[in-house]
């Protein structure tokens, strides 16, 4: 084994260790989710007799409509990703390169994100109530778009700024319109940043709790709220909520795996230009 290879394996070990350490809570949840309530109560080091009953509960046996909760979460998260990108890409480009709104757009977005989510609880309830969108998936897509737009605008601003202006100027010389430059020149270069934004928006929308609590009551309930049903007035159902936590990370993981082609395969600005 040559030294370069050895160094790469060293990286594997180091990254692997970090990946395990940050995921101790998740692995613990996985472990607990297969233990019976009795075995959980006997302490963390007891293995006992494995059971899948918590997964049955987390998939609906506990009397809650979990398949529906998962579906709602997926629709809300995908919808929010699409809407956020649709709004953020053109307007951020316009702000950074064409002078639309100038620095105001970014300052305002950042200011918005400084407000605690609770601030918006009642106003958003009233707004969605007036629009007839309470307890609907579109209502929650709009709310999550609102929550995540600042993040997308800030990240994309940094992304657009990273691209040398010469790239655009070259395209302009070739006679490309502004729209074409954005669509065919800049977006491929910025693919990694766009994908990172999409992943983050998906995750944050998937994880939203407070807006879901305020805006949904039964039809649009997402999985985060569904899981809260296991925090009961007679304690926390540790096994059930662990199983739900494990299951609820799978869709974002799938989304990240799908997205990571663009993140990991080294599709970099240099490669495109080269």
């Amino acid at each position: 084994m040559n030294s370069r290879k050895r160094r790469l394996w060293g990286t594997t070990v180091a990254v692997g260790l970090i990946a395990i350490v940050v995921n101790v809570p998740w692995f613990n949840a996985l472990f607990v989710s297969f233990k019976s309530d009795g075995d959980i109560s006997r302490g963390a080091t007891v293995v006992g007799t494995p059971t899948t009953s918590h997964y049955a509960n987390a998939l609906g046996a506990a009397g809650y409509d979990f398949p529906r909760f998962f579906l709602n979460s997926a629709l809300i998260a995908l919808g929010a990703v699409a809407l956020v990108l649709l709004i953020a890409i053109p307007s951020t480009y316009s702000a950074i390169r064409l002078g639309f709104g100038g620095r105001f757009i970014m300052n305002a977005s950042s200011g918005l994100r400084l407000l605690p989510a609770i601030f918006f609880a009642v106003p958003y309830f009233l707004l969605m109530s007036n629009l007839g969108l309470l307890d609907t998936v579109p209502g929650l897509i709009l709310a999550n778009t609102f929550l995540n737009l600042p993040l997308a605008i800030i990240l994309l601003s940094a992304g657009f700024r990273d691209v040398p202006v010469e790239v655009e100027e070259a395209a302009k010389v070739d006679g490309a319109s502004t729209y074409r430059i954005l669509g065919s020149v800049l977006m491929p270069i910025l693919a990694p940043s766009l994908v990172a934004v999409a992943v983050l928006v998906f995750i944050f929308s998937w994880n939203d709790y407070l807006f879901a609590l305020v805006l949904s009551s039964s039809n649009a309930t997402p999985i985060t709220l569904g899981a809260a049903n296991f925090v009961t007035s007679t304690g926390i159902r540790w096994g059930d909520i662990s199983a739900t936590a494990v299951l609820s990370t799978l869709p974002p993981v799938l989304f990240a795996i799908f997205a990571q082609r663009y993140l990991v395969s080294g599709l970099s600005a240099g490669a495109v230009k080269g």
């Binding site: 940050v22 995750i203 899981a227 909520i241 936590a245």
Partner: peptide, 14 residues
Amino acid sequence: FTMLLVPIMVAPAL
């Protein structure tokens, strides 16, 4: 790489 992202995939409340 995917594993490194799992901590932010668990809803903070959860």
